[in-house]
């Protein structure tokens, strides 16, 4: 299969790595070749956490600038920071709920306004889906379900050859038992948002 390349960016603690693992497990169940790389270490120290997933016939596990077919950001300002991973055809998904870094509070840099973020993303990528995914996670019962909301939207775009059912199965088997129902609800909300 022709490789499909996905970049996921988030702030440490937002659950990016769990979402990536659920996606990887679903690919394994679906028989889709998958490789992933992630930058660990600072995940619990509030830095940026990036995962790269390459589906299909490729040996590389990382994704160069301009080579993401799919791009998901858990935080609007981080979407702009990682924008160089995209090209003019990339399908981009971003949460619009800001999580400003403390540097913005102590006068070291200014947090961009949301309209600039979404306009820039829209103009420079092939398709943009931008919405307050944290609000949907809260509706599902916990803001920590943000990762499952965005996973739903990602699968909803239909770009990846991975079915919603295989993701549901991976959520059931790979996420904590107490969170499964909430995670599934969050996934459905995100999935519906892609339409």
């Amino acid at each position: 299969m022709e490789p499909k390349r996905l970049i996921i960016v988030a702030v440490g603690g937002q659950g990016n790595l769990l979402a990536s693992h659920v996606l990887g497990e679903a690919a394994l169940m679906s028989g889709v070749p998958v490789r992933m790389s992630e930058i660990h270490g600072m995940a619990q120290r509030g830095g940026v956490v990036e995962s790269a997933l390459v589906f299909g016939d490729a040996k590389s596990t990382i994704i160069s600038d301009g080579e993401a077919d799919l791009f998901v950001s858990f935080e609007p300002c981080e979407a702009l920071r990682a924008l160089k991973k995209c090209n003019a055809n990339t399908v981009a998904i971003t949460n619009t709920r800001p999580l400003p870094p403390f540097t913005a509070f102590i006068g070291r840099g200014t947090y961009p306004d949301l309209e600039t973020v979404t306009e820039t993303l829209k103009n420079k990528t092939g398709r943009l889906i931008a919405f307050d995914a944290t609000a949907l996670a809260e509706e599902a019962g916990n803001p920590m379900c943000l990762n499952m909301v965005l996973l739903g939207t990602l699968i909803g775009t239909g770009v990846l050859p991975i079915t919603a059912d295989s993701i549901r199965e991976a959520i059931r088997t790979r996420t904590k038992a107490d969170f499964v129902e909430m995670n599934l609800a969050a996934f459905e909300k995100g999935f519906a948002r892609a339409a």
């Binding site: 619990q44 509030g46 301009g66 920071r81 924008l83 160089k84 990339t90 540097t103 840099g109």
Partner: peptide, 22 residues
Amino acid sequence: DAPAPVNAQGVPDLPIRPPTLC
């Protein structure tokens, strides 16, 4: 023949997000 990364024109300067003590 490789896809061109998006150009950075019009992307505002962003506040850095260094790792920090918890």
